[in-house]
Amino acid sequence: MAKSVIVKNVTKRYKLHTKTSERLLDIILPTGYGEDFYALRNVSFEAEEGDVVGIVGINGSGKSTLSNIIAGIVPPTTGTVETKGETSLIAVQSGLNNQLTGRENIELKCLMLGFSKKQIRKLEPEIIEFADIGKFIDQPVKKYSSGMKSRLGFGISVTVDPDILVIDEALSVGDQTFADKCYDKMNEFKERGKTIFFISHSIGQMKKFCEKALWLEYGQVKDFGTIEEIMPNYEKFLKDFKAMSKKEQKKYREKMLKNQESELVRA
């Protein structure tokens, strides 16, 4: 199968600031200002057309940062991401303007994706039907529940028919009926050879839908392989991690980050 996504040595660094003056210094000074925080460090992997990749990891591992980089919403600090075709991110509030109505958001997002007014008018009924939020389609998005935002975002993203679909916790809200509708659509995409990245805290959802798993731990790739290879080890780790006290979890995190720093220095 042809490669659809190639992520090579991707690092994402942010500066931590405690006040506005530090932000200004960060902009003004050539080397920036503030403590470095690495959301991702030297992440590399490849996905093929038709792959369904589950991205797993405890909170703070960089899953959402990676999803935004794959979707082209934020750039990596260093490294490269090559994608084949159009990419669409589905998150609870991705790309939605809270001040606009649902219908206006459909037009805005489709215009940003390069669709003409005529094409949008043709797509709109299908998006509205998929989202199934009734009269709220003409209400400002700020009045929506998180489930309704997810419905609208999902409806827009799947209807515009992207080549690569990135789903970040979009099925963690809403009812099971809508989730089943989304799975049907994703399975359709899967059969058509599209690449899907799926982020969820639900182990059951991962096992049900994904074929491969990318395990991130504090910004680095811990493991990558088939779902059968990765998930038993990840589940064991998750069980052990949850059994730790808050103090032990913090100590573990500090130890892992220190090891990462040492590896970077040796490299």
Rank of each mutant, 00 (worst) to 15 (best):
I28H: 12
R23W: 01
G54S: 09
Y33Q: 05
L24S: 04
D26R: 07
E22I: 05
G32Y: 03
S21N: 05
E22M: 08
E48D: 14
L29N: 01
E22Q: 13
G60N: 09
L24Q: 08
E46S: 14
R41H: 12
G60F: 10
A39Q: 06
D26N: 11
A47D: 01
K19N: 11
I27W: 13
Y33S: 09
G34A: 14
G32K: 04
A47F: 00
T31M: 13
G62Y: 04
I28W: 12
T18Q: 15
S44W: 05
E49R: 08
F37G: 09
S61E: 07
T31C: 10
G32V: 09
I55W: 00
S21F: 06
L25Q: 11
V53Q: 01
S64I: 06
F37N: 07
E49T: 06
E48M: 14
V52E: 02
G54R: 00
S44N: 07
K19D: 07
D36M: 08
R41A: 12
E48Y: 12
D26H: 05
V53L: 06
G57K: 07
G50Y: 02
N42W: 04
D26V: 09
K63A: 08
E22P: 02
E22S: 10
A39R: 03
K19I: 05
D26W: 08
E35V: 14
D36E: 15
I28S: 11
D26S: 10
Y33T: 01
E22H: 08
V56Q: 01
Y33W: 12
Y38H: 14
T31S: 14
E46P: 05
I55T: 02
S64W: 03
S64C: 09
S64F: 07
Y33N: 07
G60V: 12
V53P: 00
I55S: 01
A47Q: 00
Y33K: 08
G57A: 11
A47T: 00
P30A: 12
L25P: 02
I55H: 00
R23S: 03
P30T: 09
S21D: 06
D36L: 11
N59H: 01
L29E: 04
V52C: 03
G32P: 03
F37E: 10
R41L: 14
G62N: 05
I55P: 00
A39M: 10
K19T: 03
V53F: 01
I58Q: 13
D36V: 07
T20I: 15
A47K: 00
K63L: 07
S21T: 10
D51N: 04
E22L: 06
E35M: 14
E35K: 15
N42K: 11
F37S: 11
I28A: 14
I27A: 15
E46D: 14
N59E: 03
Y38R: 15
S64M: 09
G34Q: 12
G62K: 04
T18W: 15
N42E: 15
N59T: 06
G60T: 05
L29T: 04
Y33R: 08
G62Q: 02
K19S: 12
E35A: 15
D51W: 00
E46H: 06
E48K: 13
E49C: 11
V53E: 00
T31G: 13
E46T: 15
D26F: 07
A39E: 06
I55F: 01
S64A: 10
S44K: 08
